[in-house]
Each structure stands twice: as C-alpha cells, then as structure tokens.
C-alpha cells in the first residue's frame, strides 16, 4: 500500500509532493530569484558609478572598439544556446552537442575579448589608480566575466554529459536552467555596455 503510493509520487510530479502539477520547476524558479539578486548587486555598482561621477577628480573614458566585438560574440552565443536548446528538445543530440560546443567557445572568446578590451582601456590611460572611472571597470567587468565563467563551467558540464557514452539524459531542466542563465549574463552585459556607452 504505502510502497505503491510512494512509487506513484516518485514517478509522478517532479518533486513528488502529492502529484500536484507544477507550472515551473523549482530549480528554474530558484535561478530566477538568483538572477534578481545578481541584478541588485550590479545595480549597486552602477549607482555607485553615477554617484562617484559627480565627485571632484573624476576622469572619464571612451569605449574601446573591442567591447563592440565582445558584445557581438556574446549576443551570437545566446542565439546558438537557444538553437542548442531547441535541438535538445527535438532530440537531435548531435546538433545539440555541436551547438553547445560553439556556445562554449563563444563564451571563452567573450572573456578573452573582455580582457583584451580592458588592456586597451588601460592603454588609453584609464587606470585603476587615482579617482577616475578606471577602477570601476576591473570591478564591474571583472565580476561580470566571473559570472560568465560560471556559465562556461555549466556549459562545459553539459558538453561533458552530452559526450559521455555511458549515460544518456533526456531531462530538459538542466539545459533550460543553463540556457536561462546564459541569456541572463548576455543581457546583463548588454545592460552594462549600454550604460557605459550612454554615460561615457
């Protein structure tokens, strides 16, 4: 009796609580709340930038070309990520694997371009020392890059899983969670880019 009911729960609803249909998976929801909290942190930084800009001794900057390229790279990676998700849902595993690899590569390219862009900024005289805008870049762009790196780790795990021949998983939740996060770090970058473009 008891065994039966438990089995029913365990094969039924995702988290096995009484067989109630859930609209959104708890992991996805947790991610959304987490995204809200990351947004608050960057909102804190950009508002600090606005306050600091009004203070004496401020040195501005102009946006290096490389950041346009990195923006293109991460926007492209969002498209490939979405295509990968679609491929996964239609069970085209080969295509999914390739698109995932491309997304990961674009993510790595983005971080490399960010580092190069940062050096270009340094070259243009925007430095950490002093009281100019320079220090914000290493903090804001650096933390954003860290969040992208987190996404790359998640992507790498997904690639590894997709390549593994011993296990086959058709569970869409981890792929969707990764995709949502990836789009988020993309949009976060677009926000930061537009913010600095408008304020430079």
């Amino acid at each position: 009796m008891v065994t039966n009911s438990i089995l029913k729960q365990y094969t039924g609803a995702p988290m096995g609580n009484g067989g109630q249909r859930k609209k959104i998976h708890p992991y996805k929801f947790t991610l959304w709340v987490g995204i809200g909290s990351i947004i608050m942190m960057f909102a804190g930084f950009t508002s600090a930038y606005i306050v600091k800009r009004e203070q004496p001794g401020w040195i501005g900057f102009s946006m290096p070309m490389l950041f346009w390229y990195s923006t293109a790279a991460i926007l492209l990676s969002s498209i490939t990520m979405q295509m990968a998700l679609r491929a996964f849902k239609s069970r085209e595993m080969g295509r999914y694997r390739n698109l995932l690899l491309i997304t990961t590569a674009l993510g790595v390219l983005f971080i490399l371009l960010q580092v190069a862009g940062y050096y270009q900024l340094n070259h243009m005289g925007v430095r950490v020392e002093g009281s100019g805008s320079g220090v914000f870049f290493i903090i804001i762009f650096g933390l954003h890059a860290l969040h992208v790196a987190g996404g790359i780790v998640a992507l790498a795990v997904m690639v590894f899983r997709a390549l593994s021949s011993t296990r086959r998983s058709y569970d869409v939740v981890p792929v969707e969670v990764t995709a949502t996060y990836w789009h988020f770090v993309d949009l976060l970058w677009v926000y930061l880019f537009v913010f600095f473009l408008l304020i430079q």
């Binding site: 709340v33 809200g36 909290s37 990351i38 608050m40 942190m41 960057f42 909102a43 804190g44 930084f45 600090a48 600091k52 001794g57 950490v128 020392e129 002093g130 009281s131 220090v135 903090i139 933390l143």
Partner: peptide, 24 residues
C-alpha cells in the same frame, strides 16, 4: 535576496579602497 547583494557591492568597493589604493 534583494538587499544583501547591494551590501556585498559596497564591501567589494571597500576592499578595493583598502588594498588597491582606489578612492571610492
């Protein structure tokens, strides 16, 4: 969830002021 990240950003800037010679 909405307020602790802002505190964290404040602390990160403080850490830079302490050790990187910045003037936030």
């Amino acid at each position: 969830v909405l307020s602790f990240p802002v505190l964290l950003s404040g602390f990160i800037l403080l850490l830079f002021d302490r050790h990187a010679g910045t003037s936030f």
